[in-house]
Design a protein around this nucleic acid. Structure first.
Length: 933
DNA sequence: GACATCACG
DNA sequence: GACGTACGTGATGTCC
């Protein structure tokens, strides 16, 4: 290798190592080394980023010299200047600390110069090297997006944001700070920095600072001529706080003369030594990366000791689907053979056929089993004489079936045997059916949940989808068997031979999917997610759903009648006001009346060319006209009546007298549950009239309903994930978080807070969780868009970590095609790289998913632990409403249950994730849900 | 069955 | 630089 003197034609890359580590740590779930549990998530991310950097910078513009620069020690000369410098920084997370030396080792393993200096920040070393290189006539690229480094840009020095692959030159700096690089420190001195706790001038942000600097030339001139400033408050601040501003400048000014014990020539680019690099990666047990880099280097990947055994190659093609091979089991001896086969293997795929989709009502018709691909059977149990054979609709049992009791007696020991794994597709359904026949199926695996853990966000997880996608096989459709509409029959009327082909195939498909998915779970690193957040929920939800909640039919019925009366009155008034009779429930007809007959403002909107008559539009019109208000009132009543007071009555189970919802584990992409038939997660609460519906949800005599809900869980999680010291502190102090935000943003002291300012801050807080946009906030707050954008800008100024979180999250999604929760749940974002308006949706969803998803994981963990915790307390968990759990509790156990449940909920993240904020659950109780909530 | 609307977190 | 836009759900009634 030739050694050249650093000079003209040379190109130095300076990588901000701490930024890499920080990003890697927060972008990845807490991975540990498999062999000994050493935390290595950040090291893993760091190595991936280094590798990506190397690959991205191999072209003609490749650097000649490169170094990764780290911070060393927590005390620097800046702390001597100002003891509060970076004082609001959180302590380094426990699981990150041991990874710090490993990142240095990693850098050296890549054969990249690794530099740090006690008592100096990485930024100072970078500054010194950049200046040296510039003076020697070379080019410099600083690989970082840290704005503190922007003062170095210019004269051959550029910055590169590695995540966004965006270069920042002089113009980029001007765009960010409103001034050139040479004046950046002046602007920073005035604006201050809440992240580093640089005080600056109170009330002056970047925008104002740039304005002032541009007007007066530089900071010193500005301060000398501060008396000339017109705005009295600003003038006084600059005069009073001169010392503080000058101190701030010293804090943000980088030291370009750090005493280095090496020269630029020592930083010459060197190729990695394959042995050194690969053995380091292998030692860390990074399987994928080791292999990838070995391929790149043309070397052999070292064997990683603990590597999982190579998965059996799935031979789906080798065994074609053949319905004619499925056995119809009609006798005990034949069934026993299948059970024996199950015991030989230790697992079996199981599927039930029933008379309907509602597990609380449907009856068992038959059971299918599968032990090997292609080897499946169907056990018909309660098929009736088929309709075509018996025109008179007899419901006599068809011939050639085992008695139900006999079959269940044979199967029950196997289905309950802890050594036999029962595999299903949506096992909650089958488990509930079996439970009603006295069989507790356990343990289980569920291919639907496996797919959800691995492919959440990519596609649905129904059997048809999975079979087509992963087995290239289209299952026998159920439609031709059952028919549709009025002539539809239930499965017990399907002829047994047809039923055998259909039902056995389902078990066959399930088993094949399981064989395919099981090893993949590990490869995709979602085994823990599947085993702690998905699978254990099945028995918990099954129990909740089967227990149901008591609903007072009379209360609902009376409300329905009252609503009907009021609606009739409103309808008459509406017709009167409109001057004609029309269907108030038809948005199309209402649009005609409002916008054509009455000639009101508000144009066409929908894709279908119809007038839009949503609540917000009518709300605006209601200030001028009576009719829209009446329609709004009518609609509210109509909604309450049709969706709740009427519909809920039909969901009261005649046997139990209770309402049994069904939770979909895979329904929501983020990890939330979805509730259907009926949806008990959207029972009204926001309006007084609606909330009264909750009075119909009651406890049995001697019991009360107890509700515990997480307080601000998503904002707390945001504060943790985005690492916002101010927000975390506010939660620690138990402050009103929206008022705190308002105070911080609008410079209003907490004791002068008005409800309106707080309301605006609250909307912004929620907006942030949803991936805020100026337009959306403007519409929500009904304020001009520019004002909303101003709020958002200000928010990002006050909480710069939020912006960083959003940028990092989107960058991660674009690179990986998914985002992750703190617990490792992957939410795929297949549209994230799409062009056009779709991209906006996708970006906001990506920003929201880790927050909403982490909250969903937290309550899932609480639910999984809850049954054991409240065991013996005569309490039942009934419902989950995203951040709330509702229990039915014996009166004398209430306080005890609240204590236990609260502990479980507040500690639900432990020990997997150490949150910087505490989780808080508020409790309520009462005779009905309205009182308990 | 698509669409609009509106209930919840 | 324009484009549309808050995130995640389910149930209902119209209308084709």
């Amino acid at each position: 290798m030739t050694t050249t003197q650093f000079g003209k034609g040379c190109h130095l890359h300076l990588i901000d190592g701490s930024a890499f580590i920080f990003r890697a740590y927060h972008a990845l779930p807490p991975l540990t080394r498999k062999s000994d549990g050493l935390p290595i998530g950040a090291v893993s991310g760091f190595c991936n980023m280094l590798q990506k950097y190397v690959e991205d910078n191999a072209g003609p513009d490749a650097p000649t010299h490169v170094a990764v620069i780290f911070d060393k020690g927590s005390h620097t000369f800046r702390n001597d200047l100002y003891d509060l410098y970076k004082a609001n920084r959180e302590a380094m997370p426990e699981d990150l600390r041991p990874q710090m030396p490993l990142t240095r080792e990693a850098t050296k393993a890549f054969n990249i110069a690794c530099k740090e200096l006690e008592g100096y920040e990485a930024d100072d070393i970078i500054a010194t090297l950049a200046v040296q290189a510039r003076e020697a006539g070379g080019r410099v690229t600083i690989v970082s997006s840290d704005k503190d480094l922007m003062q170095l840009v210019g004269g051959g020095v550029e910055m590169l944001d590695a995540m966004k692959n965006k270069r920042i030159d002089r113009d980029g700096v001007i765009e960010k700070f409103g001034v050139g690089p040479e004046r950046v420190v002046d602007v920073q001195a005035l604006a201050g920095d809440s992240v580093d706790n640089v005080p600056g001038a109170p009330g002056i942000g970047v925008k104002t600072a740039a304005l002032l600097i541009n007007e007066y030339g530089d900071l010193e001139t500005l301060l000398d001529r501060a008396e000339e400033i017109k705005q009295p408050k600003r003038r006084q601040t600059l005069i009073d706080k001169r010392d503080q501003i000058e101190l701030s400048k010293k804090l943000v000014q980088l030291d370009e003369e750090t005493p280095l014990d090496f020269t630029l020539d020592d930083l010459e680019v060197k190729d990695p030594e394959p042995d050194t690099l690969l053995s380091f990666l292998a030692e860390m047990e990074f399987r994928t990366l080791t292999k990838r880099i070995a391929d790149k280097l043309g070397a052999e990947a070292p064997v990683i000791a603990d590597a999982p055994a190579p998965a059996d190659e799935p031979e789906a093609e080798a065994i074609p689907f053949d319905a004619s091979k499925y056995e119809c089991v009609r006798y005990a001896a034949a069934l026993q053979k299948w059970i024996d086969q199950t015991y030989e293997r230790g697992w079996v795929a199981v599927d039930t056929e029933t008379t309907g989709l509602n597990e609380m009502i449907a009856n068992l018709v038959g059971i299918s089993l599968c032990v090997e691909p292609g080897e499946a059977c169907y056990i018909p149990l309660t098929h009736r004489e088929s309709a075509t054979d018996d025109l008179f609709g007899s419901d006599a049992l068809a011939e050639g079936q085992m008695p139900l009791d006999e079959a269940l007696n044979l199967l029950k020991p196997m289905l309950e045997d802890p050594s036999i794994l029962k595999i299903g597709q949506n096992m909650k359904y089958d488990a509930k059916i079996f439970r009603r026949y006295g069989v507790d199926v356990a343990p289980i695996d569920d291919t639907m949940l496996m797919s959800y853990a691995m492919h959440g966000g990519e596609h649905g997880h129904g059997m048809d989808t999975l079979s087509e996608r992963y087995l290239s096989h289209t299952p026998i459709p159920i439609k031709p068997l059952l028919g549709s509409g009025k002539s539809a029959i239930t499965f017990d009327k399907v002829p047994i031979d047809e039923a055998t082909a259909y039902a056995a195939e389902d078990a066959d498909i399930t088993l094949r999917l399981w064989k395919l998915f099981k090893p993949q779970l590990h490869q995709v690193q979602v085994t823990t997610v599947y085993e702690t957040l998905e699978r254990p929920l099945v028995p918990v939800l099954a129990e909740m759903e089967m227990h149901g909640i008591k609903v007072d039919r009379d209360v609902l019925s009376r409300m329905s009648n009252a609503f009907a009366q009021k609606m009739a009155g409103l309808e008459a008034e509406i017709h009167e006001l409109a001057g004609e009779n029309f269907n108030v429930g038809s948005p199309a007809q209402l649009g005609e009346i409002l916008f054509e007959k009455m000639g009101l403002e508000g144009g066409k909107k929908g894709k279908t060319g119809k007038y839009s008559t949503g609540a917000d539009i009518l709300e605006d019109l209601a200030t001028e006209h009576e009719l829209p208000r009446r329609v709004l009132d009518w609609r509210q009543l109509s909604k309450l009546k049709s969706t709740y007071t009427d519909a809920l009555q039909t969901h009261i189970n005649p046997d139990t007298g209770r309402v049994h919802t069904s939770y979909s584990i895979t329904g929501a992409n983020t990890g939330r549950l979805a509730s259907t038939d009926p949806n008990l997660q959207n029972i009204p609460v926001r309006t007084e009239e609606g909330r009264r519906i909750r009075e119909a949800f009651i406890a049995e005599p001697g019991n009360v309903l107890v509700s515990l809900d997480y307080s601000q869980i998503e904002l707390r999680i945001l504060a943790h994930i985005a690492d916002i010291p101010t927000l975390k502190q506010a939660f620690a102090d138990g402050l009103d978080i929206h008022a705190m935000t308002a105070s911080e943003m609008f410079d209003v002291p907490l004791d002068e807070m008005t409800p309106d300012i707080r309301r605006q801050a609250k909307a912004i807080n929620f907006g942030v969780i949803y991936g805020i946009s100026g337009f959306g906030l403007a519409r929500n707050l009904r304020i001009p868009r520019a004002d909303a954008q101003g709020f958002i800008d200000r928010y990002f100024e006050r909480f710069p970590g939020i912006r960083r979180y959003m940028d990092d999250t989107i960058a991660f999604a674009k690179e990986n095609g998914y985002v992750q929760t703190l617990f490792g749940r992957k939410i795929h974002t297949p549209e994230i790289n799409a062009k056009g308006p779709h991209a906006g949706f996708s970006r906001r969803a990506a920003i929201n998913a880790p927050i909403q998803g982490t909250a969903a994981d937290v309550i899932r963990r609480a639910m999984v632990r809850m049954p054991e915790a409240i065991n013996g307390l005569s309490a039942k968990m009934l419902l989950q409403v995203h951040d709330e759990l509702l229990f039915e509790v014996a009166e004398d156990s209430v306080e005890q249950v609240i204590g236990v449940a609260r502990d479980i909920m507040e500690g639900a993240a432990d020990p997997a994730v150490k949150l910087d904020i505490k989780l808080v659950a508020d409790a309520g109780q009462g005779a009905n849900w309205a009182e308990a909530h």
